[in-house]
Design a protein around this nucleic acid. Structure first.
Length: 257
DNA sequence: ATGGCTTGAGTGTCAAGA
């Protein structure tokens, strides 16, 4: 393919959000769309309507929580679920090759609160992801990591940095883990094009947070060097967040030459 | 104000998200 559009979207239940997804892919026509929080077992995944919309899909899901999918115009090959060597019943990672691009779709743990058991799990998960990805990049130099990272990398990614300082999604160990991924050579596609503050991918359902733009930038697209070099743009599409009964996350889109 | 919405489970009310 001469140009390629890749995207990521935490849909917060694909059961509820399938109409939004179908409408969105009809307009934006991504070649690859990574989904998080499908909250579906594999046998309930809506393969048929997505096929009719022109997408092959692979899914690693479970009841109620988590669940990740890769939709692609070309059928993904070499599909692997999970982080190799990290036993985890939570369905958070799915990788596959689309064309000449290795795509890793990830739903990072939330962590609940700094110091909690879930936070410790998040840090262990982040370390395992880092070590696995270092091998993946060696095997596939053209790699994209897309997903809900549940990390706001810097203060400019937070509506109220002082209120969030040291809190979950913003703590220094989480931000260090994000930088460790960048140190593997993975570039934050959005920040190649946008330096400003106040640009977010998630807004709380409560307190009219979206209308007031009280959000965080926690959904990201990280690109290995040859892919980053070919990236011509990256944006957050806030249009679906304005719809009736929206996901609390907006899609992030990157275009590759 | 540890609240404020939303979803899935399951049919009363809680866990979890971020």
């Amino acid at each position: 393919m001469t140009t390629c559009r890749i995207a990521t979207w935490n849909v917060n239940s694909l059961n509820v959000r399938l109409p939004h997804v179908l409408d969105w892919v009809a307009v934006e026509k991504p070649d690859v769309l990574c989904l998080q929080e499908t909250k579906l077992e594999d046998h309930r995944f809506p393969f048929e309507p997505l096929r009719e919309a022109g997408y092959h899909a692979v899914h690693s899901g479970q009841k109620t929580y988590n669940g990740v999918a890769i939709l692609a115009k070309q059928p993904p090959t070499g599909v692997v679920a999970g982080i190799r060597g990290f036993e985890d019943p939570q369905r958070r990672v799915l990788a596959g090759t689309v064309g000449d691009l290795r795509v890793v779709c990830a739903y990072f743990p939330n962590g609940q609160a700094v110091g909690s058991e879930k936070y410790e799990y998040k840090l262990r998960w982040l370390a395992a992801l880092h070590d696995w990805l270092s091998e993946e990049i060696a095997a596939w130099p053209r790699l994209a990591l897309l997903g809900d990272f549940n990390i706001a990398p810097e203060d400019r990614d937070v509506h109220d940095p002082e209120a969030w300082r040291g809190q979950i999604l913003c703590s220094e160990p989480e931000r260090q883990a994000f930088r460790s991924l960048v140190d593997l050579g993975l570039q934050d596609a959005f920040r190649r094009f946008e330096a400003g503050a106040g640009l977010f991918s998630w807004w709380d359902y409560r307190q009219a947070a979206f209308r007031r733009n009280l959000g965080l930038r926690i959904d990201h697209i990280l690109l290995s060097p040859p892919v980053s070099a070919a990236c011509t743009g990256c944006r957050i599409d806030t249009a679906p967040r304005r719809l009736e009964r929206p996901s609390d996350h907006a899609p992030v889109v990157a275009d590759l030459a």
